[in-house]
Write a protein that binds this DNA or RNA. Structure first.
Lengths: 233, 233
DNA sequence: CGCAGTCTGTGAATTACCTCACAGGAACGC
DNA sequence: GCGTTCCTGTGAGGTAATTCACAGACTGCG
């Protein structure tokens, strides 16, 4: 997947459930403001604390939104898929980046300059309403994460995360539902605020119960109800 | 503080740093859409999961935004002061309340019906832009909370929270800066995702260092630098 | 192929925090 | 005034999760 024509870009961005209610012509205009950029796996798109001078949309690949602690521990806050936008908070309020962004695979992004985006936003008030939805969605996720980390122990947090990964990145297969993105147990730990070892023990327990299984680097959810039962009680 | 005249209401709401750039006439019009409602200390404004049929602004008192776990533990996510709005997420995206809201003192609120607010919002696109700022602010706070609970131990989390309480609710006094809102150690625990006992031990340690002191129910920060030093290393 | 690097699996020791239990002080009502 | 209730203070014991240490499996890559 090398370059994209402008109509391909429009096609990808329009797949976004929240933006796709925008006028197609306006959306095309917005995409035309941006440039396509390519990142290798592991490439840093921006760091927490940077000035937020660009808004991004994922065209292909996957982007991890993360934060690094003072003593070097990583926390993965979110994973952004094709058609999703990210980096909107700093672009909108003019502050620093609240988190970092890293390409988790070879990734292509559409990036739009803050100044150009903001002037487009002023000319198209409807877009502001759509962005409110995006931010509400982010806020709901963030609140969920807070609740989970405060209230739930690691096995439960793991089970819950597997279910939500399944919903966003699952594809049916013979044994159950396969999670298409490849995550090491360390990555999972970084998503849960837990160590690799703890995640390993949780996964092994779920395997013994028959709730999940492993296919190479890919997790397969075999029994959704079992996972749900574990979470509450 | 019994009833408010409409100009008093406007005065309070206009104090909001984010909304005050709105046209004064428009803001008055918006306030006129609402009704004033009074809550006793401990009164429940809405619960997590309720339909989000109203937007609120605080006129006087204080509102705790909270969440209750399956086994009855409370988590206080935020404290809303006069001139601030809350309940906007569910009103904007039409979903359930992401958290509950409780009056922490005798409190007066201005409440606006979702339908009326949304139609006002469509007529006044500038308001949408202002709301984007509100949501960005919420998201920054939420991200900070996630990072703190994952990365920091309880003494550090406590120190950080005391500093942020100081910024939002501090007034200078003889010994240092007094936190004006009265919080029990249990409340503080609920804000940190920790038990009362752990908070107590943390507070006592900070007292011994001379970083803070107690004045009745009110905490006083005596040495900001000491608290900051504790947080990073 | 074989060797390096990454990922998984697992136990022992340590630790931070929670639970429980109890005691004293302050605040409030009547 | 005195009892009730809420808040603070503190220690002993239990536990979930971390740290550390090591071993085996798998994945390229020269």
């Amino acid at each position: 997947m090398a370059g994209h024509t402008s109509s391909e870009i429009l096609e990808i961005v329009a797949r976004n459930q929240i933006l796709n209610e925008l006028d197609r012509h306006e959306l095309g205009e917005l995409c035309a403001l941006g440039q396509v950029e390519r990142y290798a796996k592991g490439g840093i798109i921006f760091d927490k604390g940077d000035p937020g001078d660009r808004l991004y949309a994922v065209l292909s690949g996957q982007v991890g939104i993360n934060s690094i602690s003072a003593d070097g521990k990583e926390l993965i806050l979110n994973i952004m898929d094709p058609s999703e936008i990210f980096g909107e908070v700093a672009v909108l309020d003019g502050g620093e980046r609240t988190a970092g962004a890293v390409a988790m695979q070879v990734t292509e992004l559409l990036r739009i300059r803050r100044s150009e985006f903001l002037s487009f936003l002023e000319r198209h008030p409807k877009l502001a309403i759509r962005l409110l939805f995006v931010l509400c969605d982010r806020l709901r996720r963030a609140t969920d994460i807070i609740e989970d980390t405060v209230f739930l122990d690691i096995p439960r947090r793991l089970a819950k995360r597997l279910l939500s990964l399944m919903e966003r990145h699952g594809e049916p297969c013979v044994e159950g539902i396969r999670i298409t993105i490849k995550l090491s147990q360390e990555d999972l730990g970084h998503m849960l605020g837990a160590t690799r070892e703890s995640v390993n023990k949780g996964i092994r327990a779920l395997q013994r119960f028959g709730a999940i299984s492993y296919d190479g680097g890919h997790l397969i959810v075999r029994n959704v109800e079992q996972l749900e039962d574990l979470i509450d009680q």
